[in-house]
Write a protein that binds this DNA or RNA. Structure first.
Lengths: 208, 208, 208, 208
DNA sequence: CATGAATGAGTATTCATTCAT
DNA sequence: CATGAATGAATACTCATTCAT
């Protein structure tokens, strides 16, 4: 005899909310905001639709909540993996390592952030943009520090530093999810990026 | 008899289609697939809704047609700007130049491709993915050529070459639209990327 | 052990029910049946929602109970103020006095009966209609008595008597709530109505 | 063979809108705002639901449109029947005649205005209140004129005049719909009201 | 009995899409 | 082919209501 009827188990609100977010992240990531219906999410969470609305207000807010949670988690994971106070290249290296590991382990979350939440139509495109800006600024600071420590560079305009950071972040985003081996991916990117940066800082720019 | 009606004089089908696509690209790029209604597009194109359906079948097909056209145009622009037969770095340089110039001059098209068409939910995500693969493969070939020409490299695994290409493409995408000065942006990216690559090929990898 | 919980000490059922009805009357009167939610009422009553259901079964029954209570109270107040056995005009006068005083002192109840419960959609529209019929009949009787006592009237058809009563009741309803001074309002209405009636009974009808 | 398929006949928008309003007035009047669903209305109008929304925007706006139309029609009917420039009692008499006739001939419209649109919850309760105020003011003016023309009255305070008008309007509303014979009903009310008023103006108030 | 977790059953609303003229 | 009248089919959202603790 089934001990469990049709009704969902009684569970405290905080827990249910996380379950719902889990389900929603997964469905949104796979099918996109538009194609996802609230019924699907409710079913995936093993819960009735009104409960989803009771806790998360609306489809937009639910999506935003997913994005916020995943963004926070990713951000925290990266931050935690950065060796604060180390040399800039070490900081970048450790940060990338954390980034590639986390995204590899949480493909749904990453796909939500990178593949869904950024597109124009989605709610909370701002949310994501803001997180990205934060990251770009962190990298900008790293490169800036390295630039100041380097001896004999002509000058590296702020605009250029920021562009380098933007490029680096874009490269990392592009690589995320392409390999299960975070260490290798991070190494590749460091080779690509930091070594090139080294040349630049040493006064050996590439020229056409 | 009026020679000129209120709107939409007699015009050959091919032209009309392009007008519609122009309008659609612009609206889709600004408001996203989801938020855009067929009425809006018909109005923006100065054409009646049934005509849009007659020529372009459905919203999805219309969107796909937009994406395909823009992807083809971008692809052609880049291809045209590449100095075929030149050294790999020259080819990359010229290609990037073409890319940044074209995207700067066609912000709607670029936003459509990069900001809207890639999201999971959108139809023709494949279309875009395919174009991207094509580009990545082109860059992969460039890097591969350079690697083979370089003298004393340990070995550069195919997987690693592809990852480098992926990183480079991601970096370029990330930079596109960030500046009106295509030449400067391209130079920054070359400094960043190719110089790093040079170190790598010369057997001076970055190491943690 | 706490003698006093956060809310809702032990209280006999009858009392609790009245508290709930008080709250419900107030909320229904202000926001209408449709706009009022059971949560609002439970909160206003300082009671948990299940208790509301335990005692009052459903939203419709709750509304009906409110209406019934208020109707009964109004009816009783009016009846109590009527000088039974006096001359018809004295009876009417005293009844109106009671009516205007009671409605002025219980605006929520009056608004519930007059402004909410009568609309077609509301449950217990019958309840209210019944009370109204009762009152109309009472007034009909008064006028009938006066008519029989009056000397030289041609004939006053039953239908006409009833119409007069209906008019009088409508006039009273229309005036209720328009002034805080019950006595003045009642006087105005008597002047308006009974005096006209007097003419009629004396064989001096208005004629076009 | 049916010449008429399932689709509704092609009909110009203005006509369809009136058909919809006809249907909506009828359904709203019978079942009330809350109990009425848009499906019902669409079906009653012999039309699909999206068309209702296309033309009338929302349930609230549809209801409001109904009320506005009925209010305007009633108002116009009454205004048209008033003998402008005649003596106050003639004006009132003719107005009442028009009122009772119109409401008797349009029971749905009247029930909508009187029975549904006035209750607190309904949208456009203001709409109706405004119309009522307009009418009350018209009657107030009539009585005021009569009062000024009457010779030897103590004084009739403005407040009192307005109260009399309010009573008269309430009485009329209460009688509307109670009889098919508008002329008789109007006569009854004139007897009741104007004759009483006559006494009052002649300095013979009723006194307790 | 208080609490708050949970839901069945409906509702308004909005698309993309198609005919008839 | 332009026009605008018309709709099928979904989807977000809400409410009164109940049950386990």
């Amino acid at each position: 005899m089934e001990t469990q009827g049709k009704r969902a188990q009684r569970v405290p609100r905080a827990v249910r909310e996380q379950q719902m977010l889990d389900a929603a992240v997964s469905v949104f990531a796979r099918r996109g905001f538009r194609a996802t219906s609230m019924d699907e999410i409710a079913e995936a969470a093993g819960v009735s639709k009104p409960l989803v609305y009771l806790y998360l207000k609306s489809k937009d807010e639910l999506f935003t909540a997913c994005v916020r949670r995943e963004a926070k988690a990713l951000s925290a994971a990266v931050r935690a993996s950065v060796e604060a106070g180390a040399a800039p290249d070490r900081q970048l290296w450790s940060g990338l390592l954390g980034f590639f590991r986390y995204t590899a382990e949480h493909p749904d979350g990453w796909n939500l952030l990178y593949g869904q939440a950024r597109s124009g139509g989605a709610p909370s495109a701002d949310e994501v943009a803001a997180m990205r800006v934060e990251i770009v600024e962190f990298v900008t600071a790293l490169i800036g520090t390295a630039a100041r420590e380097a001896p004999c560079v002509p000058v590296l305009a702020d605009r250029e530093v920021r562009a380098l950071a933007l490029a680096l972040v874009g490269a990392a985003e592009s690589l995320a999810g392409s390999s299960a081996n975070g260490r290798e991916t991070a190494a590749t990117l460091m080779n690509f990026a930091w070594a090139g940066l080294g040349n630049l800082l040493a006064g050996r720019p590439w020229s056409p």
